[in-house]
Structure formats: structure tokens, C-alpha cells
């Protein structure tokens, strides 16, 4: 590298610094005011945890929190199973119908979420199903399969097929080869995408909004209804807890592949980047 390239471009660096400030400003504000001792959202009067105490004593908020955790867990498990099956099938099958299926399964990724939400609402009511946490979970699984498939396929594509061939030569049935050779190598990708889906579903508002019943509601839907009645410090406390929890999950999802000493991390798969 020459010296010219090492010199920092003032413009790009300035934009980046301003960008990071803008990115974190609202997050810092939510966290800060969640510890405010008074109701004001403009001035910080003193440190207090009263809004957190309020939250943990609000049984309907706690019910919503448990509901969201349950939905996220079931949706992560369901989409992991279906998404991995899909990834294995798509990556290895070499037919025209395989490619067509591949395209169809990516559709949920490029469809605006509101469209998916509307369609799911009509689907469930059309079948005469009562809207509840079950319908939310079914919709979330459908929406999350594509994420798992994309990440797992990325990992499969970088695996050399020779290992699997070797297992077959040693007398494994195709299913044994999958179970004993491919699945163990996929563990980091599976953990990473499972955590990612858990975080996405736990936070998801739009799809949950369209497919939920009245009671109990998933946490984001519950928060949305209280925001519409005005800003309150209690929301800051819930928001802080949610931000911290999802941040933790995402950081874990990013770190998992590193723990397994893999060169590609989940982040690279999301960014589509390659290490030089």
C-alpha cells in the first residue's frame, strides 16, 4: 500500500463518525431515560430503576414477554428443521424443478412484510382458525425458513463434496452420510441461524400485528398499542431490555462460527463478504 492510500480520506471518515453518532443517538436516549427518576423525556433528573420495577410487576407485560419468547423458540426450532432440509435438498439436487423450488422459497425474503402479514391474516381467517399465538408462530416459521436456508446453503456451498463421497465409499447410506458427515459440519451455521431467527422473530412486529389475537399479544404488538397512547418512560425500560436481549443474541450469532474456528462467520454470510 502506498502512502496515499493510507492517508485517511477526511470526507468518508467524517460521514462515518456522524453516521455512528446518528445510529446510536436514539438507542442511548432510550437506555438513558429508562433510568430517569421522573416522567420527563427531555431532562434527566436522577438515577432510578422504578420503571423496571413497574415492568416486572405488570403481569400483562410479563405474559406478553413469555409469549414472545415462546413464539421465538418454536419458530426458531421449526424454521431450523424445515430450512435445513430445504438447503440440503436445494444444494444437492440438480434439476430444473429444484431451481424453480429454490426461487419460490426465496419469495418470502423479497416480499414486503406487510404483504406477507395481510396474506397470512386472510389465510388463517379463511381456514376458520382463531387468531392466537399459534397463528403468529405458524406465520413466523414460514417467514423465517428462507433465512436459515440462505445461511445453511452458504455453508454447504463451501464444503467439498469429496468428504461426503468418501463417506459413501465407506458404505454409508445417503442418509447416514448426511447425518454423520454433513450435519456435524453444519453445527456452527445452524446455531448461528437459529440465534438470528430467534432474535428476528422475538422483535418482529408487522407479521405478529396481523396474525395475533387479542389476548395475550406478543410483546412488540403490546408495546405498539401503548406507544400509540403516548410516549411513556415504562416503554423505555421495556425497550432497553428488548434491545439488550436482541443485541446479545445477535452478537452470539456473529461469534458462534468463530468459536468453532471457522474462517467464515455468520456476519460474512449476511454481508456476502469474503476475506482476502
Amino acid at each position: 500500500m502506498s502512502r496515499r492510500l493510507e492517508r485517511r480520506p477526511a470526507f468518508a471518515v467524517t460521514v462515518t463518525v456522524v453516521f455512528f453518532a446518528w445510529l446510536y443517538l436514539p438507542i442511548v436516549a432510550v437506555v438513558l431515560f429508562s433510568f430517569n427518576s421522573v416522567k420527563s423525556l427531555a431532562t434527566f433528573q436522577g438515577f432510578s430503576t422504578r420503571w423496571y420495577v413497574d415492568f416486572f410487576h405488570d403481569s400483562s407485560l410479563i405474559t406478553s414477554l413469555t409469549a414472545s419468547l415462546g413464539i421465538a423458540a418454536v419458530a426458531a426450532a421449526g424454521s431450523l428443521i424445515l430450512g435445513t432440509m430445504l438447503a440440503l435438498g436445494l444444494e444437492r439436487i440438480r434439476s430444473r424443478s429444484g431451481r424453480a423450488i429454490g426461487a419460490v422459497t426465496l419469495l418470502p425474503l423479497v416480499t414486503p412484510e406487510i404483504v406477507t402479514g395481510v396474506a397470512a391474516l386472510l389465510f388463517f381467517t379463511g381456514l376458520g382458525m382463531k387468531l392466537s399465538l399459534v397463528t403468529v408462530t405458524l406465520a413466523e416459521i414460514t417467514f423465517s425458513i428462507a433465512y436459515v436456508t440462505v445461511i445453511v446453503r452458504g455453508r454447504l456451498a463451501s464444503m467439498s463434496p469429496e468428504v461426503e463421497e468418501a463417506a459413501r465409499d465407506l458404505g454409508c447410506t445417503p442418509w447416514q452420510a448426511v447425518r454423520q458427515v454433513i450435519l456435524p459440519t453444519l453445527v456452527p451455521a445452524l446455531l448461528g441461524s437459529g440465534l438470528l431467527v430467534f432474535a428476528l422473530v422475538f422483535d418482529d412486529f408487522v407479521l405478529a400485528f396481523f396474525t395475533t389475537g387479542v389476548d395475550p399479544q406478543p410483546l412488540p404488538v403490546r408495546i405498539y398499542s401503548s406507544i400509540r397512547f403516548g410516549v411513556s418512560p415504562a416503554i423505555n425500560a421495556v425497550g432497553t431490555l428488548m434491545l439488550a436481549f436482541s443485541a446479545l443474541l445477535i452478537v452470539l450469532a456473529l461469534l458462534v462460527p468463530r468459536l468453532f474456528h471457522r474462517k467464515t462467520s455468520t456476519l460474512d454470510l449476511i454481508a456476502g463478504g469474503e476475506r482476502p
Binding site: 436516549a29 432474535a199 410516549v231 416503554i235
Partner: peptide, 29 residues
């Protein structure tokens, strides 16, 4: 740095929009 950009974006979209509405409201910061 990339992780520092990605992490907040995967955290609740709703909470982040709410945060802006609180910041920018007439009696906000």
C-alpha cells in the same frame, strides 16, 4: 465496526422508531 452497524439494526425496529419519536417530539430532548 461492521458488527457495530449490524447489531442495532437487528434489534427491534419498533423500539428504534419509537426512540426517534420520543427524541423528536415537541417536548423531547
Amino acid at each position: 465496526l461492521i458488527a457495530a452497524i449490524v447489531v442495532p439494526f437487528f434489534a427491534s425496529y419498533l423500539i428504534r422508531m419509537y426512540a426517534w419519536s420520543a427524541l423528536l417530539s415537541d417536548d423531547g430532548v
